[in-house]
Simulated assay, not measured.
Amino acid sequence: MAKPITHGPDSRDGHVYDMPDDLRLAIEVALAADRPLLLSGDPGSGKSSVAPYYARLKGLRYYEHVITARTQATDLLWTFDSVRRLGDAQAHRGRLNDGDYVVPGVLWWALAPESARSRGGLLAPSLHRDPAERFHHRHHPNGAVVLIDEIDKADPDLPNSLLVPLASHEFTVGDTGTPVRREADAGPPLIIITTNNERDLPQAFLRRCVTFTLPGPTRERLVSIARLHLRHERRGLPETTRDLIVALADELMRVRATADLGHQRLPSTAEYLDALRACLALGITPDDPRWPLLRSLTLAKPAEAGR
């Protein structure tokens, strides 16, 4: 019988990440230069996992915003619920406080958490909870990590619209005229922006970022990542599991080596972990008759899949 998995495969809880030395240096350079870190790489290469891992490792506040085609730059700074405000005004609920309708975005919380709690002084600070508390239950430590995920999904104007707030660490809430500036006690934020390179980013935006590309997986790194995850999940590492880890790593590298022929897409580290968890849960080994099907379901996916 398959053993139930009690966690999500992409939980972003920051517990497990195999941080290569060159990526660690890229983070240090971004912090020293006070610039965002733009991470590129294949889908499933672990770009989105870097930010929560680093935040947990350093005990920092953590925020994230996943970009979609409808995301606007102001969504990362603030949103204003004009529909609710109009409804309250029509209901004659007395004098309205615009602060009740302002929702700080991830960059506001990261740069100026005290201002975000009070909506720039429009409300009592105690009325609003820092969303980072869902991740780190610490008393507002200095410094924050912000993940802006998949910026290449956005309209091309979005990166350019973020140039000033990312560079100056200040902006004005247009709906209320409230100025927001980075608070001294907040500490310098680490802003990590990911891209799958589905769309070119403006040169002016790239100039203001420290850039790093995550390399494709290697056999050795896949084995290391698998061991880290299994230890975190408190699974044993008997010889059969160790053999399975290596066999799947070899299989993924074989698929990647032949994917350039155009018949298959490049499988990622995330898909390798999917295959490993499925094998462990279902008792599938390389000599199992189900192995070829599992390979095609998780690793050797057709290049046109999903089109």
Rank of each mutant, 00 (worst) to 15 (best):
K47C: 01
L222C: 08
L86Q: 11
H7S: 15
L25A: 05
H137A: 11
R235N: 15
R85A: 07
H15E: 10
Y53N: 02
P289K: 06
A249E: 06
W109V: 03
A303C: 04
K153W: 04
I148V: 10
T172D: 06
R231C: 05
A73Y: 09
P131C: 15
E114Q: 14
R129K: 15
V106L: 04
V83G: 00
G177N: 10
A2D: 06
R221H: 14
H7V: 14
V246R: 05
H137K: 08
R221G: 12
R35I: 09
R265V: 10
L76I: 00
D274R: 01
P36N: 07
S45L: 00
P20A: 09
R24K: 08
T258E: 12
T213C: 11
P9R: 14
H15Q: 06
A32T: 04
H140K: 13
P189N: 08
A89R: 12
G87R: 12
P215D: 15
V145A: 06
D274W: 03
V102Q: 09
R70D: 15
C279D: 02
H15Y: 05
M19F: 11
R84N: 14
D260E: 14
Y62N: 05
A116Y: 04
N197C: 04
Y272R: 00
T194L: 03
R307Y: 03
E251Q: 09
V50Y: 00
L147W: 01
S168N: 12
A73I: 09
A32F: 04
T258K: 10
S296H: 15
Y101W: 13
L266N: 10
K3A: 10
D155M: 02
